[in-house]
Amino acid sequence: MDCKQAEKLFDAYLDGELSGSMATELGAHRLQCANCRRALALLEVTGHIISSDRKPESLTPDFTDRLLACVDEQELGNWAKWQHRFYLGAALAAAAVIVLAFAGFFDGTRVGMVAGEKEVNPSMTSDAPVEAIEDDEPIEPAKEAALSEWFRRTEKNVKSKKESGESLQRALDSTLEQVLDVLENEADMAPINPDTDAAKTPFPASKSDGVGDVAEEDGH
């Protein structure tokens, strides 16, 4: 074994990975070669000093306490960050609502509607009874009763026309005519007598648009 071959085995030898026969060969070369002997000894000694140097490298005594205090601070900081984000989000949302309110976004509309768009009373498109129609002015009880009665009659009228096989459009048209008559006469509100003609059923003019629209929709 020459020096080049021996040097290639240095790492395996130092890592304890050299097989028995190779270790013997390297040992024999080491005895003969002063350079390899010196090089190998240098590496062995260096490794030994690095591994055995127990020079005290102590941390400051309160290291753990300070570290755990930092952990607490970090957690509190995270909580404060979330709180800050929450308050900031709430403030931004409130500001957005105020801006939209000033811009008239919510005037006469519901969520999901664009300002100026006419509202469709959901009760008119379903079988649910009419309870109230939203408006700026409060509805008087008498008017409300009259409206309820009118819708009830309309529903009954439409149902009977359906059952008798008559044109639904005609039934709706006749109801609409009654509504328009009332609008033209600007009739005063009065309690509804169930026996009186539906054409006399009074209701505020402002409601006519909605009712008429729905009646037309039902006809489709």
Binding site: L59, T64, L68
Partner: peptide, 17 residues
């Protein structure tokens, strides 16, 4: 916190070294 302290105490010297 007790577990955290033990984890720190059992590793800090080696890591620091």
């Amino acid at each position: 916190r007790v577990a955290l302290r033990e984890l720190v105490d059992s590793h800090k010297e080696r890591l620091y070294g």
